[in-house]
Amino acid sequence: MEMSVPNAVAAAEPIKLDAVPRRGALYRIHHDGKTSYLFGTIHVGKQGFFPLEPEVTRALADSTSLVLELDTRAHRPFEQALAKYGAYPAGDTITRHLSPRALAQLNKALAKAGISLQSVAGYRPWLVANILVGSEIEKHGYHRSNGVEGFLLSAAIAQKKQVHELESADYQLSLFASLDDAQQERYLVENLEELENGKALQKSAGLIDAWSNADAARIATMARELTAGDSVSAVFMDRTLLGKRNPEMTNHIERIMQTDQVAFVGIGLLHLVGENGIPELLRQRGYSVEKVY
């Protein structure tokens, strides 16, 4: 007599694992017989974003060096730059530099975030604005400890690769200090208003979501939204954080590509977007730039 076999066993198939989704944007750069890679990162994230897509991990494994905006392992230079550009001299406080209306808005936002005025009183308005936006993002599950740079660094260290910085913490934070008192107050107020109406989270989460799905069209849309208009925040993003830095980063990337056999460059996603983005700037300088995805 034949024994019946349960359908589930009879029809058993190999377990299929879900493919790792594509995230960010990846470019392959060719010049003078050398190949390097550009990968768009985000500075905050979730643990579920890792591991990255196999094309990214293979590109990093094939590289001889990792290039980041900053080596995030170096805490002291960042802390020194924060003290230099983000804090007032001893005895001075933010309350002396804000209008009564702006100070009232700040107190309201701090109370909502559960942050005391005393704890940030010595900080300049641009830094307080960034702290509050960062706090709001963290409440919704996005953490700097899960930023892409940390994942890339861990992999590069395990693979015993050289790590290069494109910038210094001193330089990055000096850009915010280029805003005068009136601009800093406006920058703070704009961010407080967007925290209040939900746009701050909407913009940040929108960009992170576009990155997590490698959604090129939405990434481009988010870049336009973040740089459009005449607000201090948008103009600063467009002209300084992107417009000024992109050509400087491109210069540095060129120098690294001339000396390193294969460089894997991981930089903020917005630096790769549009006609003034680093891929396009490299094309204009005679590099062959191929978008992998």
Rank of each mutant, 00 (worst) to 15 (best):
L60F: 06
L60W: 06
D62G: 02
S63M: 06
L66S: 09
V67N: 03
V67E: 01
V67L: 03
E69M: 07
E69A: 06
L70R: 01
L70D: 01
L70E: 01
L70F: 05
D71R: 07
T72Y: 05
R73M: 07
H75M: 09
H75G: 07
R76W: 03
R76M: 09
P77K: 01
E79R: 03
Q80L: 14
A83P: 01
A83F: 08
A83E: 10
Y85E: 04
G86L: 04
Y88L: 06
P89W: 03
D92W: 00
D92P: 00
T93M: 03
I94N: 12
I94C: 06
I94R: 10
T95F: 01
H97Y: 06
L98I: 04
P100W: 01
A102C: 07
A102H: 09
A102Y: 05
A104T: 13
A104S: 14
A104N: 13
Q105F: 02
K108T: 14
K108S: 14
A109V: 03
A109R: 07
L110D: 14
A113K: 06
A113E: 09
A113H: 05
A113V: 02
I115P: 11
S116E: 12
L117F: 12
L117A: 10
L117I: 09
Q118P: 11
S119P: 00
S119E: 04
V120W: 12
A121V: 12
G122D: 12
G122C: 13
R124Q: 15
R124N: 06
R124W: 04
P125A: 10
P125S: 08
W126K: 04
W126S: 03
V128P: 05
V128T: 10
V128F: 02
V128C: 06
A129N: 02
A129G: 01
I131P: 00
L132N: 10
V133D: 07
V133I: 11
G134W: 09
S135Q: 13
S135H: 11
E136M: 14
I137W: 02
K139S: 08
Y142N: 04
H143S: 13
R144G: 08
N146R: 09
G147F: 14
E149D: 13
E149S: 10
L152I: 12
L153G: 14
L153I: 15
A155L: 15
A156F: 13
I157Y: 08
A158N: 12
A158Q: 14
A158G: 11
A158W: 00
A158F: 06
Q159S: 15
K160Q: 14
K160R: 13
K160W: 02
K161V: 12
K161L: 11
Q162A: 15
Q162F: 07
V163A: 14
E165N: 13
L166A: 09
L166E: 05
E167I: 07
A169T: 03
D170P: 03
Y171H: 15
Y171S: 12
Y171F: 15
Y171L: 14
L173R: 09
